[in-house]
Design a protein around this nucleic acid. Sequence first.
DNA 1: TATCGATGTATCTACGTCTATGTAACCTCC
DNA 2: GGAGGTTACATAGACGTAGATACATCGATA
Lengths: 145, 145
Amino acid sequence: MPHARKSVTPAQVADEFSRTAKVLVRHFNERLGEHGVSTPRSRLVVEVARSQPVRLTELALAVGIAQGTASTLVDALVRDGLLERQTSADDRRSVLLRVTAQGAALAQDWTAGYERAAEELFEPLTPQQMATLVDILRTLSAAGD
Amino acid sequence: MPHARKSVTPAQVADEFSRTAKVLVRHFNERLGEHGVSTPRSRLVVEVARSQPVRLTELALAVGIAQGTASTLVDALVRDGLLERQTSADDRRSVLLRVTAQGAALAQDWTAGYERAAEELFEPLTPQQMATLVDILRTLSAAGD
DNA sequence: TATCGATGTATCTACGTCTATGTAACCTCC
DNA sequence: GGAGGTTACATAGACGTAGATACATCGATA
């Protein structure tokens, strides 16, 4: 049972949240940087590998970024030979994305790196606390529509 | 008492966290946008109003951004007449920041806007949940040094 | 007091991000 | 089968951010 504590104001919670968010971002960037990739780029490649072929807008939705952002990032990843664009035969407006062989190999590495980074990060929490945290996070993001 | 639930992986927690973080950012940007300011700019002005006179690096630390970022943002806020820079007499390397009269008035408005936005955002949580959340957040950011 | 490392700020570069907009292709309905 | 609205993607502009670095100043010490 949680011990008694002085009540916190919503603004304090917000402050603490954004501070922690920055810690997470930095942690993932550092760990994935050791694999030679940034967090957003790795997220895209991993997601394409997981669900290819996938349309651009679907991909953006899956990883939680705006479509325009995804378009730009994918462009760079195609230039770097990790992803392939292909116009859909069914709907010539849409673009189907797939990983190249190189992209697939890196996606595996980066998935492992991401998971390890997450384990490190949440290591100080008990499974119970992780479950509680996810509960709260889902409540918040569900409300923020 | 929390009910039993399937255990979550650290990577899932990380995903949920970053998704929620985006919801928060968007919410604050929207609410503060109604006051004609972005979240980072308002945070700076409010913090200066709260603890003036304050050095640039101190300010950056207080709001949790990099010193270079603070320098650029402060530059714009000075141009817009909300803050004043003054070289310290004690240490001529350092810059003391203060709000102008206009900045002070806006800081009050923005503080209220920020607090209201935070209340809205965390409204779905019980005080108990807020306390638990802050507990967990502090554990995480303390570990992430 | 001359030097050298430490500190405070500004600036540069690169990145990820969003919003708004443009363009092409699709689909519906008359 | 064409018109008009809708959808998919690309592009442009603005912003906030970090990191590295340059520069001025400080402080300790030889």
